[in-house]
């Protein structure tokens, strides 16, 4: 779909240029005055088309604040995959909620972030724009902060077929980045349930991204846990809606 779309756009641009060029040629051919001094042909300036999107994210959980929402537009790629190891920027985001490295990835063509965390029962709306014709793929990611390394989001979703003002919605499930053991222990959880350290570069879990099995909590028999029954969650954790606004 990307290939087709990109091809169409490039084709359109080329034909536009050809049209301008041929008009210029006709103009030159008609002007057969001997005094005519040919001027350098200035290549036509093609104003790149701007695409804008409005993205609304709702926290559907009972007691899991979501870390600042990272939004990226990029080329055809996935920023995580089930059964693959998480990148270090994703590890940082999913263990500490810090999205700065994730947003700084060179493959991102446009990015934005919510200013702060998104508490349970609330929504945030973010706007993102790009003139980059290849930026047809969307990634949104956020950490469930009262966990060791749980995150929710979607990655590498083709949005090139969205018409102007068209809206698309998803209910998103929870992933485990597989980079930190789910011991729920004091000092390991960055959210308000603990206030512990977030990111630790050591990987002491499966080192594979997978679906999250939920938190256990001390109320359910994990004696070392700082979490209570209130921090338990079920899928979906997030509702995401994107609307193309330009």
């Amino acid at each position: 779909m990307l290939t087709f779309n990109t091809y169409k756009k490039m084709n359109h641009k080329i034909s536009h240029q050809l049209l301008v060029a041929s008009i210029l040629t006709v103009g030159l051919a008609a002007c057969n005055d001997n005094d005519y001094t040919p001027e350098a042909v200035v290549p036509p300036v093609v104003t790149p088309m701007e695409y804008s999107y409005s993205i609304t994210l709702t926290n559907l959980t009972y007691a899991q604040p979501l870390s600042p929402i990272a939004v990226s537009l990029h080329g055809d790629s996935k920023m995580w995959q089930i059964g693959q190891a998480a990148s270090v920027p994703l590890e940082k985001l999913s263990e500490s909620g810090d999205n700065s490295d994730f947003l700084a990835l060179a493959t991102n063509m446009a990015t934005t972030s919510s200013e702060g965390p998104v508490p349970p029962g609330t929504s945030v709306t973010l706007n993102i724009s790009t003139t980059e014709s290849m930026a047809n793929y969307l990634t949104v990611v956020t950490m469930l902060v009262n966990t060791n390394d749980a995150f929710s989001g979607l990655t590498g979703v083709d949005i090139s077929t969205l018409e102007l003002n068209q809206e698309k919605s998803w209910r998103l499930n929870v992933y485990d980045s597989g980079t930190e053991k789910n011991d729920e222990a004091a000092g390991t959880i960055p959210g308000p349930a603990d206030g512990g350290v977030g990111y630790d570069s050591a990987r002491n879990d499966t080192n594979l991204v997978g679906y999250h099995s939920g938190v256990v909590s001390k109320d359910d028999g994990l004696s070392s846990s700082v979490l209570t029954q209130a921090h338990r969650f079920d899928n979906p954790a997030v509702k995401l809606t994107i609307t193309r606004t330009k």
Partner: peptide
């Protein structure tokens, strides 16, 4: 603590 309609966290 959450007085909005939300996904049920499940029973314990």
């Amino acid at each position: 603590s959450n007085d909005k309609v939300h996904i049920h966290r499940g029973s314990l």
